[in-house]
Design a protein around this nucleic acid. Structure first.
Lengths: 163, 163
DNA sequence: GTGCTTGCAAAGACTTTGCAAACTT
DNA sequence: AAGTTTGCAAAGTCTTTGCAAGCAC
């Protein structure tokens, strides 16, 4: 399992370098540190969190570079932008999961659960056809309250975001 | 049709006043101007647009009051917050449409189409159950490109947002 | 009259940008 | 060596907030 995971990260790492080369962008320490920070993180992360993680790998990484690198990562498809509305904009390293995914956002602990939603693409196509549009991305999100928190006054996810 | 629409607006207007009264909030000219601005607008609108519309009704309305009134309107359920991600946060007056709706967002003209999505609630329930969560809101969005624009180099919706 | 609401301007949060130094190729 | 990329700090954008004047009740 661990080796499999490393495999995916290593492949993605090469993909990223290829992507940079294709776009005539340079392979810098900062860009690779940001890539590694994103892919070593299991959960969703914000730009600010990515800055923190990146600096643990290469302290020279600046906020500006993180903000400049994120669009490259999302354009390459290696990082997915997760917009759950309101305040926060999250990102998630794409490690071979299916593309049709929905997010369940806990309103109590703010944890984001990613789940497969295999009908999503079909749905987008069906609806868009009628409007003369070609679907590009689909987003399905359910915001929900934690029943465990309500019953037990506690929720083990409460602090998990900071892992 | 026009009378029907006015009926809905008038009913909503009374609901808003009731809501304010229930919450011990005062019925001010500014709040009512903002309400009217929202309900006289057919399309989705941003906070800034709502400020403009409101000022046409009551020039004394300030940006701050719009930002302070929007949460009241959304809390009352009379205005729906539509988060299509990226930059813009939109709002839409709730004029008796079904609650289970999806948004199709045109990536070219930025127009937002609202459509019924009757399975949305069912889906949220099914998925959330497994996670021990109680669904509160569901959001389904498809971002799509305009085929007409691609074929004809033009799209009649291009300027519609400013209506 | 009491105290909630308002407009204004300042402050906040988050993101982008200009520029000279540093680095990749 | 040439030209991209970087960090820094300043600027931008959107939203919130403190305060004294104004208004609803």
């Amino acid at each position: 399992m661990n080796t499999l995971k490393s495999d995916i990260i290593n492949k993605s790492r090469i993909s990223f370098k290829d992507f940079l080369a294709t776009k005539s962008l340079r392979i810098t320490n900062q860009r690779m540190a940001i890539f590694d920070a994103a892919f070593n993180h299991i959960e969703h992360f914000t730009a600010e969190e990515l800055l923190d993680f990146s600096r643990k790998i290469d302290p020279s990484v600046s906020r500006a570079t993180v903000y400049r690198t994120l669009p490259i990562l999302t354009e390459s498809g290696l990082v997915k932008e997760i917009d759950i509305g309101h305040d926060n904009k999250f990102y998630l390293a794409h490690k071979g999961q299916k593309n049709e995914r929905a997010q369940i956002v806990c309103l109590d602990c703010e944890k984001i659960f990613e789940i497969d939603a295999p009908f999503l693409e079909w749905y987008g196509n069906t609806v868009s056809e009628k409007l003369g549009l070609k679907p590009e991305t689909q987003r399905l999100q359910v915001h929900a309250h934690c029943l465990k928190l309500k019953d037990l006054q506690t929720c083990e996810n409460k602090e998990d975001r900071m892992v």
